[in-house]
């Protein structure tokens, strides 16, 4: 059945970017306040799901040609590599390091290896959620 979903499609084109930006914001907010990779990942995934609802699977895969299994694997590797970095310094696994840096534009900021771990979590969450949704949504 062909439905006329012009309103949904037009708003989605706009809203998707807002959701995506908000998810990035939440992701970085996790540094000191509630938020982080898991919530950010879920938000991004929900944005992509909105795209899937408004358009069909084929259009979205052409627009975002991402293999979500690979994304999951990369996320897992990033997370484990960050945590395993401590092995090379012979300190207990998962020990993180941080320091303060002067960054251009942003001024003095602390950079923390937990951020890398969280990026891994983010990728895993988006990857797993999208794999699940695609595997249900792939056939009608």
């Amino acid at each position: 059945m062909k439905t006329n979903d012009v309103i949904l499609q037009t708003t989605t084109k706009l809203i998707f970017f807002i959701i995506f930006l908000f998810s990035i914001h939440i992701f970085f907010a996790g540094h000191y306040t509630p938020g982080g990779g898991f919530v950010g990942g879920l938000l991004t995934a929900s944005g992509i799901v909105l795209l899937l609802l408004a358009f069909d699977l084929k259009t979205v895969t052409t627009a975002l040609p991402i293999n979500y299994t690979v994304m999951t694997a990369v996320g897992l590797l990033l997370a484990i590599a960050t945590a395993a970095g401590s092995i090379f310094f012979n300190v207990p696994f998962f020990t993180h390091a941080f320091d303060y840096f002067e960054l251009p534009l942003l001024g003095k900021q602390s950079l923390h290896t937990a951020m890398l771990f969280d990026t891994g979590v983010y990728l895993v969450v988006v990857g797993v959620t999208m794999t699940i949704i695609q595997s249900i949504g792939a056939d009608d």
């Binding site: 590797l77 395993a84 696994f93």
Partner: peptide
């Protein structure tokens, strides 16, 4: 624990 986990993640890349 880590070795199987690491390589399992790598194996996901080329099923």
């Amino acid at each position: 624990i880590l070795i199987p986990f690491l390589f399992a993640s790598i194996l996901l890349l080329f099923p």
